[in-house]
């Protein structure tokens, strides 16, 4: 085997393969989904930007009280408002696409805030 002939061929081929492989790099798309809570007294605003339709469930979430008080579809970008009345404690927002998954599957994205509106 003549290394003087083989080495340049292998080197050129491998180098070109490496250069070609980087052309498949896309770089990251920095658009991410998000939701956040803005609280003004007893008014809670859920700001959202989601890339697919999702559902928001609003829960009054205390030890002795756990009840869903609102369920709403959201898509795109916008604000969802919920006014709290006669309640003091934690309020929870579950954001999920389709059904809420169980077991080891991904649970909904959850946010929560504390209010004192009694």
């Amino acid at each position: 085997m003549n290394l003087d002939k083989l080495i340049p061929v292998l080197i050129v081929l491998c180098s070109l393969a490496a250069a070609a492989s980087v052309l498949s790099f896309k770089g990251q798309d920095y658009s991410a989904d998000y939701v956040y809570i803005q609280k003004t007294g007893c008014d809670l605003f859920l700001h959202y930007k989601v890339s697919r339709p999702m559902t928001v469930d609003v829960w009054l979430d205390e030890k002795d009280i756990k009840r869903r008080v609102m369920s709403q579809e959201i898509s795109g970008e916008g604000v969802l408002e919920y006014f709290v009345s006669s309640y003091s404690g934690r309020i929870r927002f579950d954001v999920y696409a389709g059904k809420i998954l169980k077991g080891s599957e991904r649970s909904p994205y959850t946010l929560y805030e504390w209010v004192d509106c009694k």
């Binding site: 340049p8 080197i11 050129v12 180098s15 070109l16 490496a18 250069a19 492989s21 980087v22 052309l23 790099f25 896309k26 770089g27 990251q28 920095y30």
Partner: peptide, 26 residues
């Protein structure tokens, strides 16, 4: 000639491997 060609191919490919991913990130 083969030597110069090999060096150039490695050099340019090496720069591409480094700079192309960098250029595509924010």
């Amino acid at each position: 000639k083969i030597l110069v060609l090999c060096v150039l191919v490695i050099l340019l490919s090496g720069l591409a491997v480094r700079l192309v991913p960098a250029s595509r990130e924010k």
